[in-house]
């Protein structure tokens, strides 16, 4: 256990995150906090007509939370908010260890985090960005 979660995809996104920066064109932002380890991040999105045009995150965290959030942004930028919420649902299913191969394929690179389902202590790290996304989109949808 342990080592196999730090695969190349995860290491690469942690060391070279594409989306770790401020977003001047952001239309909305939300903060996520993992109280057990103190990791916190802010998610920034530019949403126009129900489509996520651009996105970024800021903050500090472990390799798993940083890489997971970066991969998530790769996946959702250019998609509708509905698609993004659907992917969040799939990702949660995967982390809970209850997902089909087709559904994993839909998650593309995020499938690299599948083994986290075997590390209960790190589930919250993998979900931090995704939970923040869900909270943000639901709040935006309610407006």
């Amino acid at each position: 256990m342990g080592d196999n979660i730090y695969n190349e995809v995860l290491i690469d996104h942690n060391l070279h995150p594409m989306h770790l920066h401020d977003l001047s064109c952001a239309t909305c932002s939300n903060d996520g906090l993992n109280p057990t380890c103190g990791d916190s991040l802010s998610l920034h999105l530019n949403i126009e007509n129900g489509v996520i045009k651009d996105g970024s995150f800021t903050g500090v965290g472990c390799a798993i939370s940083q890489a997971s959030t970066d991969i998530m942004l790769d996946l959702i930028i250019g998609r509708s908010t509905e698609d993004a919420l659907h992917l969040k649902e799939l990702f949660s299913k995967m982390i809970n260890g209850d997902i089909s191969q087709e559904e994993i394929d839909e998650l593309e690179e995020a499938g690299a985090l599948q083994n986290i389902s075997k590390m209960p202590a790190r589930v919250k790290c993998a979900l931090l960005g995704w939970d923040t996304l869900e909270k943000l989109l639901k709040e935006e949808g309610a407006k």
């Binding site: 256990m1 342990g2 196999n4 380890c37 103190g38 472990c62 798993i64 790190r122």
Partner: peptide, 20 residues
């Protein structure tokens, strides 16, 4: 990140604490 440090130790069968 300290949680990643602890995970690497865990992979080698070594128990250490990480966090605040």
């Amino acid at each position: 990140h300290p949680h990643d440090i602890a995970a690497v130790f865990d992979a080698d069968g070594i128990a250490v604490r990480a966090g605040h």
